[in-house]
């Protein structure tokens, strides 16, 4: 039992990460690939936060000496355990991974915005956001020696479609 509780979080988070990765590589739709990327990044956040949790801990915001919440938090825990884990009478969770993941979330949204902006431009240039269709159009156009002349024709047919 204790080993299940000890590792289940890691396993669940790893499945979530790999699910995100699967979405990225299995779809050809650019927007959906960005969604997969977001899920991958969020799930990495879940992994970091899993490592930061201290059993019976509380949010790492220092609690005042005379706050009644202290006694209540302490009363929930086994005294021997409390003794080993507490600092200054309170068990705090580890703040460092929180900071790292805050950073990672913000990095994630910046990447998402740039990726979507490029996807919108791809749509404007190719008329589609499916990777396979884009590759097909590139093959058609660049297979010809004098593609400059053909440029207008393909453009026109794309506009119809």
């Amino acid at each position: 039992m204790s080993s299940f509780v000890g590792y289940a979080n890691y396993f669940a988070v790893i499945i979530l990460m790999m699910g995100g990765l699967y979405v990225i590589f299995s779809t050809s739709n650019l927007i959906k690939r960005m969604i997969g990327l977001s899920i991958l990044q969020t799930s990495v956040g879940l992994f970091y936060i899993t490592t930061s949790k201290v059993f019976g801990g509380t949010v790492p915001i220092l609690i005042d000496e005379d706050d009644p919440a202290r006694a209540e938090l302490a009363s929930r825990l086994d005294p021997a355990y409390f003794e080993s884990a507490a600092y200054d009478g309170v068990v705090y969770s580890n703040p460092l991974p929180h900071v790292l993941i805050l950073t990672a979330i913000v990095v994630g949204v910046a990447t998402l915005a740039v990726g979507l902006a490029i996807a919108v431009r791809v749509r404007e240039a190719y008329g589609t956001v499916e990777r396979e269709e884009i590759e097909r159009k590139d093959r058609i156009r660049h297979a010809h020696e004098s593609y400059e002349d053909e440029l207008d024709e393909t453009e026109a047919s794309e506009a119809d479609a």
Binding site: R33, T111, G115
Partner: peptide, 16 residues
């Protein structure tokens, strides 16, 4: 225009 899918591909793989 092939720069766009190239950039997107780089973005996905680079971020992964």
């Amino acid at each position: 225009r092939r720069a766009l899918p190239a950039a997107f591909n780089y973005l996905i793989l680079g971020t992964v």
